[in-house]
Design a protein around this nucleic acid. Structure first.
Lengths: 163, 163
DNA sequence: ATCAATAATTGACATTTTCAACGGTCCGTG
DNA sequence: CACGGACCGTTGAAAATGTCAATTATTGAT
C-alpha cells in the first residue's frame, strides 16, 4: 500500500516534459496502432515531398509502380491492393493516362476490365521517381540496420496481408 | 543468354494470379512505405470499427487516452504528437468536452495554453474502449509472436520518433 | 435466352486536410 | 515599464480524400 502510493506519486526520475517528449511514455505511446499510424504519417509525408518533383504523390506513384511491373493489373485489383475505392482508381488512372505514363487496355479475357500498361515515358519517369523514393527511405531507415529493415518488412507483411 | 531469355519469359512456377495475389510479389509489394501504409489502413479500419460502439474513432480515442494518462498535455502538444493541425485538435476536444469526457483547464504556467484533463466518466469510457482496442489488436497480431510484437513496436518507434 | 453478378464510370455527399487570419498571452529588449 | 515579435487556441474557408448509390457493358451460369 505504501509502495503503491509512492509509485503513484509524481515521477521523480522523469525529466519535466518540456515539449511532446513526455507523451512518448504514455499508454498511447506504447500502442502499436498508434506507432504504426505515426510512422506511416511521417513516411508518407517524406515520400510525397520527394515525389513532388516528379509530379507524383504516393498514390500515383503506387499505381505507376504496379503498371511498370508487368503484372498487368486490372483497376479492380489496384483498388483492392491499394485499399482504394474503384472510383478513386479511375481518377488516378485518368491523370496518369493524360500524362501518357500508362495506358488502359481492355482485358481480352474479360472485356469489362481494363488492364494497366506502362508506356516508355512512364517507365522512365518511374525509374527516376523510384530513385528519389529509395533515397528518402534510406534516410528514414538511418537508425535501422539492414537486417532489422528486412525483419520489419517481414512483420509488416503479416499485418498488411493477413492469411 | 539462353538462360536470361528463359528467366524473362512467362513465369512457369508462379501460379496464375487469379486475384490480387500476384501483386504482392511486385516491386511495390516489397516497398516498406507501402507495407506500412497498408498495415496502417487495415489496423485503422479495424480499430475504428471496434471503437464505434463507444462512440469513438481512432482520433478521439487517442486524445482521450492522452488525457486519461495524467500527462496534462496542452492542445499544441496533442497536435504535434498526433500529427494533426491545431484546428483539428480544437474540434476533437470540443466533441469530447461536450460529452463530458474531458475538460479544458487553462495552464496556470501559461495562460495561452489549455491543458486536457479527463473526467471520471471519461476515464471509465476509456477503460472500456481500451479493452475493445486491445482485443482487436490481439486479433490483428495473431500471426505474430509476443517477442516479434515487441520487436515490431521497437522498430516502429524508431520510425515514428526519429532521433 | 435470360438473369444475377461484376468492372468501370459518374456524380453527389461527407469527412479530413490545409491555410490564413485573429485575439489573447508570453517574454526579451530597449 | 512598454514595445514588439512569437506563440496558443480558435474560427472559417478552400482543397483534397473518402464513401456511396446508380448506370452501362459484359460475363458466366442456368
Amino acid at each position: 500500500m505504501g509502495l503503491a502510493i509512492i509509485a503513484a506519486m509524481s515521477p521523480i526520475g522523469k525529466t519535466q516534459p518540456t515539449g511532446t517528449a513526455g507523451l512518448r511514455d504514455s499508454v498511447l505511446g506504447r500502442d502499436l496502432s498508434f506507432l504504426l499510424a505515426r510512422a506511416n504519417a511521417l513516411t508518407l509525408a517524406a515520400a510525397n515531398a520527394a515525389l513532388a518533383q516528379h509530379g507524383l504523390k504516393a498514390r500515383s506513384y503506387s499505381v505507376l509502380a504496379l503498371a511498370a511491373d508487368d503484372v498487368r493489373p486490372t483497376q479492380r485489383e489496384l483498388a483492392e491492393f491499394l485499399r482504394l475505392d474503384p472510383s478513386q482508381v479511375v481518377a488516378l488512372v485518368d491523370e496518369l493516362e493524360k500524362r501518357q505514363l500508362v495506358e488502359r487496355r481492355t482485358d481480352p479475357a474479360d472485356r469489362r476490365a481494363n488492364v494497366l500498361v506502362v508506356t516508355d515515358t512512364g517507365r522512365a519517369l518511374f525509374a527516376r521517381a523510384q530513385e528519389s523514393a529509395h533515397a528518402v527511405e534510406l534516410g528514414l531507415l538511418a537508425a535501422v540496420t539492414p537486417q532489422d529493415h528486412e525483419r520489419l518488412a517481414e512483420l509488416l507483411r503479416l499485418l498488411a496481408f493477413p492469411t
